[in-house]
Design a protein around this nucleic acid. Structure first.
Lengths: 353, 353
DNA sequence: TTGTAAGCGTTATCAT
DNA sequence: ATGATAACGCTTACAA
């Protein structure tokens, strides 16, 4: 009996309190002030303020077919690279009154699919997705049937005509390889997680191989590419042993295809007591916060993550607002940050045990 | 003319195609299978499958007063500690059909307030918040008027009776200090960001001071506490200089009150060429992924982040489902991970320049 | 077991 | 300048 009735405040309550009709309040809410008198405007404003009334997004959305929700499906929200992007996107969304529904696919196409469905049910107005590549069909459906703009971050899917925002992986990889060669390394090893259709990994992997081929006969062996599934226990260790074993007397550098594998490499090297850069040099993609602080700094390829996120949100919002725009790919240039992990080696270097 | 009409699929389309009424389809959707015949159930299932129909959450929510949305306001989505928690929460939410609306307050009460309003408008069914502490009034309103369950993560607000999930900061700090003393350090310096009402910082700060007082007369000076605003350029540097300057001949350790300041400390030490642990030892809260890899490893206090996130979500969901539950505080115990940055020092240590 | 109809909180169309 | 009223897609009494 005494329980305070917590019945939700509606536009009707405001109307009643202000002595006008729902329609008038609605006009106020939609900012169509020229359709109402200054007096009633004031009155409504007061009442809203006093009652602390907040329009119901669901009702609004139902009517107007708009949720003010933008979905974001990422592979791993725990990855600093990812969160930096989300941060950028979030800022822009907030400025424009949109909220971000963030989902974690875990690189699992099944989970990704479930999230696509869920977001669809939530009537998202747009989707930013770092896709596993395993749900192209569903994405197309969402895009066509649902009329929902989609932008792919980071990972491209050539078959789809969605907007794409990321970096130019080829350029970045070439740049890094050429830098390493200018430092006179004899052997460059590429360490990557399984490529399995993930475009970034593919692009970087191929770019690496191409970059080597472009060089003269002295170029490092193409066998210096290692695919390690980090979920399998000692796979990475075996790769490291193989590479380090067969290059004992050469100047050598390990190239980590992203910051996740880079960290694992470092852990493995440390547990083996292998020194960087004395025993082996190191370079990696992404520029995690710790890169400057491990060893004498690790040379990395930095992406403009925040800008990538902002651009994603910008694109989505433009499309939502109906700005006419050709489908487009936005590739930012990455930036090589030289640090202590890749010192120049003497051209006639010959390592003694 | 040729343009495919992308009119949204509704429950009515399904009903028509299945030759039944909306209500029957609705029954199917709500899983009330005992109220419909096996035949129609099959039929509806087929149609839904074939049409790829997804019920509209906004319409459902409008009627049922439920959004299946849970808000999460965090201070910094870029902080690994935070994302680990979100990850845990997200898993649980997903399992239960809820989506997470993640917002970044940037430790700014104003932004926080805006997000609270926004989430309120979105009719969230629950809120997980790492609060700045500056919007208690609005949180109470949301809780009372909106009938929305709230759980505070990480940061407590004693005035509010919301559920709280975090770690026992006092216990963790005591444990760490006593460990440092057992390693025979003469001076322990506390480095924190401005405390400004953020409970975690307050708790740890006080616990540190208390822990020292508990010790005998030999305890380190209470002046070894430094508050550095990381936004101000050289403030941290000055603190470091002060501490290192006045303890030149003593065994000493720096205690970073969280992983953000810990990283900044490391950067500053490196730029000054100060060695860890040779010149100064180091310990810090949180256990970022890089802690094991910097220097010979950094001693840290690890929190069960994923579990914290899961517990938040669990609590919120229970409250949403009306499970009767006393307001409660869940404090997990943190775990001290000893690494190379805090070696034991000889009791009669006397440092020579 | 199934259908009819009212209603959730808005916006938009049409009167006035 | 303002007010009725229908509609958005769904759920839920209530009827049949």
């Amino acid at each position: 009996m005494e329980k305070k009735e917590t019945s939700k405040l509606t536009i009707y309550d405001v109307a009643k309190a202000a002595g006008v009709s729902k329609s008038t309040v609605s006009r106020y809410l939609s900012g169509r002030f020229h359709e109402i008198s200054e007096n009633t405007k004031q009155k409504i404003q007061e009442v809203i303020e006093q009652l602390n009334y907040k329009p119901n997004h669901m009702a609004r959305g139902l009517k107007g077919n708009k949720s003010f929700l933008i979905g974001a499906i990422v592979a791993d929200i725990t990855n600093p690279y990812t969160t930096a992007i989300l941060r950028g996107a979030e800022d822009i969304c907030k400025e424009n009154g949109y909220a971000l529904l963030i989902c974690n696919s875990d690189n699992n196409p099944l989970k990704e699919k479930e999230y696509i469905s869920m977001l669809q049910a939530h009537q998202i107005d747009g989707l930013i997705i770092q896709t596993t590549g395993g749900n192209n069909q569903f994405l197309e459906e969402l895009f066509n049937d649902g009329d929902t703009p989609i932008v792919l971050v980071d990972r491209k899917v050539p078959e789809l005509s969605f907007d794409i925002v990321g970096i130019d992986n080829q350029q970045a990889t070439y740049r890094a390889v050429s830098y390493l060669q200018s430092q006179n390394y004899e052997r460059i090893a590429w360490f990557t997680e399984p490529v399995t259709g993930i475009s970034v990994r593919k692009e970087r992997f191929h770019a690496f191989q191409e970059a080597l081929k472009l060089q003269d006969v002295n170029h490092p062996s193409l066998e210096d590419t290692y695919v390690a599934d980090l979920k399998k226990d000692s796979e990475l260790e075996r790769c490291l042993e193989d590479f380090l074993g067969k290059t004992k007397h050469q100047s050598r550098v390990i190239f980590g295809a992203n910051s996740v594998i880079l960290l694992k490499i470092i852990l493995a090297l440390q547990s083996k007591g292998i020194k960087v850069p004395e025993d082996v040099s190191l370079i990696g993609f992404d520029n995690p916060e710790w890169a400057s602080v491990v060893y004498s700094g690790i040379t990395t390829i930095e992406q403009p993550t925040s800008q990538i996120g902002k651009s994603c949100a910008d694109l989505i919002l433009k499309r939502i607002n109906g700005t006419p725009l050709m489908p487009q790919t936005l590739s930012y240039h990455a930036n090589l940050i030289q640090r202590g992990s890749t010192p120049a080696v003497n051209k006639y270097f010959n390592k003694e045990e």
